[in-house]
Design a protein around this nucleic acid. Structure first.
Lengths: 143, 143
DNA sequence: ATATTTGCAAATTCTTTGCAACTTA
DNA sequence: TAAGTTGCAAAGAATTTGCAAATAT
């Protein structure tokens, strides 16, 4: 967890952003979990730890970290954005169960190659990509 | 345009939804375009045609049509959902230019097969899927 | 007839912003 | 100390909802 923290800290310095107490705590909390979380979830986690950081700051920090590529936002169709950290978490795609809401991660090298090939073939510089499969998971499909 | 309309009408009947004037006009407008549109766009189009349908009804009808599979929502990262009809529009994926905002459609049979294979291999019943590639398009990447 | 749908306006939810006070480098 | 950041509360934007009147079957 120290490595990620240092990379983020370095980035902030290089871009003349300040490493404030709030940002430290937010970055810690984000890299301490491998779960998907919403701005609200994160705010709650911090509050439970006794860190009363305002929601405005949480939103602002999430934007900053997303723009700088430390985290990525995900739309699971729940009306609010979810985030997950990218550093120390290999790229993967998602399967979302529309019945129970569970999100499953998967990774497929062939698909990754195809994404790159397709983008390249159209002169498109790929920055990021997101593949979501919506459906019914094994457990929910009982009938 | 007639075929899609009839399929939707039949669906509504079978599910004891009523085929109201507003719904007819909304369905017409949706299937008359192959563009992506937001709830607001649709409301505007209808208003320009002289159809003063309330936004609440537009939202409610979009939800209904999305749930029944006639249209699908897309998140292009603009803070609001876009829709496109599915009937009469072959499945495809999207490339979104984060610089100019343009959305390019593409289709790749290999990727489609892989999606199905992956879902199946995890006992997941795929309902729909969405692949988005974010990056810079040819025209924006000048430097 | 009666269950469904509509429009309106108010309410919700998520996110952003202005600004004065406060930190960080 | 100067520039960047925070918290607060207010503002915004997209979407949802309660309810009485209107409409489809």
């Amino acid at each position: 967890m120290e490595r990620e923290y240092e990379v983020a800290a370095k980035y902030l310095k290089e871009h003349s952003f300040k490493l404030t107490g709030q940002r430290k705590k937010i970055i810690d909390a984000i890299f301490a979990t491998h779960e998907h979380f919403s701005a609200d979830d994160l705010h709650d986690v911090l509050r439970e730890k006794g860190e009363a950081i305002s929601k405005a700051t949480v939103y602002r920090t999430l934007s900053l970290l997303a723009e700088s590529g430390f985290i990525e936002s995900r739309d699971f169709g729940r009306g609010q954005l979810y985030y997950e950290h990218v550093l120390g978490h290999e790229h993967h795609d998602h399967m979302i169960c529309t019945s129970c809401g569970k999100v499953f991660e998967f990774r497929n090298a062939e698909i990754e190659k195809l994404k790159e090939r397709i983008a390249k073939s159209r002169g498109f510089r790929m920055q990021k990509h997101s593949l979501r499969i919506f459906g019914t998971c094994k457990d929910c499909f009982v009938s």
